[in-house]
């Protein structure tokens, strides 16, 4: 009885995915209505419903709890914000790959890939009919504030603020070092690059998926920094666009291996600083036979 009378706030706070869904839907509406994105709304609905339908099929098949539909909703909205395609079937394909990968590509009981990320990559690489428009949000201080504030609310709840910040800080530092310190562009060039809406969305709403980030805190930070580094190298050396998406794909693929290695090594790396006490020279001499 008591449970039926919870306030909307309590309900919202019960699951971080509620906030994700609200924010992502707001961004999507903003993109369609204010930024006049190309595709008509039916396409987004199709992508979204495909995600839900595939998830529902697996829920039935595997007998999983129905609340996991929310994850599919988050994936569907996240993909809608990034993925563009010529044919609606491409969107269906991307969405199906995204959700199915959660159930079919599993290692040690955990799915390997970030579903939205894999769905986008599969659609872009395999169909040749899909693309990502990194410029579709534009750049600006307002975007930084809005996406940042919304993003922080969500990632704080899922405990992945370290992932976001490690990624963004590393990427921003590398970019600053190259563009401002080395090449000599003005700081406004760097600001323009860093306030790109797609980059911020990626930072707060894609890379932070708690299901596909390494479990250990330290490993996770190193992992995010690795993604930032790879994304930076791909964009500056090879002039590839939307590089964080490709970098995340690579790092997710390495996840099962890296998770294991990082966890294993993390214990060794905890004390990479030289051990403080160097006095026991005497003890060493004493213990010598």
């Amino acid at each position: 009885m008591h449970h039926l009378l919870i306030s909307p706030i309590t309900f919202l706070k019960r699951d971080a995915r509620h906030f994700q869904i609200i924010f992502l839907a707001t961004f999507l509406l903003y993109g369609i209505m204010a930024l006049q994105w190309d595709a008509e709304w039916q396409r987004y609905a199709l992508l979204f419903c495909t995600c839900l339908a595939v998830q529902a099929s697996f829920i039935r098949w595997k007998g999983l709890p129905w609340h996991s539909l929310k994850s599919a909703a988050v994936t569907g909205l996240g993909m809608s914000l990034l993925l563009k395609a010529g044919s609606p079937y491409t969107l269906v394909f991307g969405a199906a790959v995204a959700i199915a990968s959660k159930f079919l590509l599993r290692v040690k009981g955990r799915h390997v890939f970030n579903p939205g990320n894999l769905g986008i990559a599969a659609a872009v690489l395999l169909t040749g009919d899909a693309w990502v428009s990194p410029g579709q949000w534009g750049s600006g201080a307002t975007l930084v504030f809005l996406v940042g504030a919304a993003g922080c609310m969500v990632v704080l709840r899922v405990g992945r603020i370290d992932t976001s910040l490690a990624f963004l800080a590393t990427f921003a530092l590398l970019d600053y070092a190259r563009n401002v310190l080395y090449l000599g562009w003005g700081a406004d060039v760097w600001m323009h690059r860093m306030s790109n809406g797609s980059l911020l969305l990626f930072t707060f709403f894609m890379i932070t998926d708690p299901m596909t980030t390494p479990r250990s805190n330290k490993a996770r930070i190193a992992w995010s920094m690795g993604i930032a580094f790879l994304a930076f190298v791909l964009s500056t050396r090879f002039w590839i666009n939307a590089t964080p998406i490709w970098a995340l794909l690579v790092f997710c693929a390495l996840n099962p291996v890296l998770d294991h290695l990082f966890n294993g090594r993390a214990f060794h790396w905890i004390a990479p600083l030289p051990p403080m006490p160097l006095q026991p020279t005497n003890e060493q001499t004493i213990s010598r036979p």
Binding site: T10, Y30, T142
Partner: peptide, 24 residues
């Protein structure tokens, strides 16, 4: 439109943050 919507979104966010803080 964009500015108006940005404001709307901003207000919505503030409301959410506020309600979350109140709830906490």
């Amino acid at each position: 439109l964009p500015i108006a919507l940005l404001w709307a979104a901003g207000l919505m966010l503030l409301a959410l943050i506020g309600s979350a803080l109140l709830g906490a």
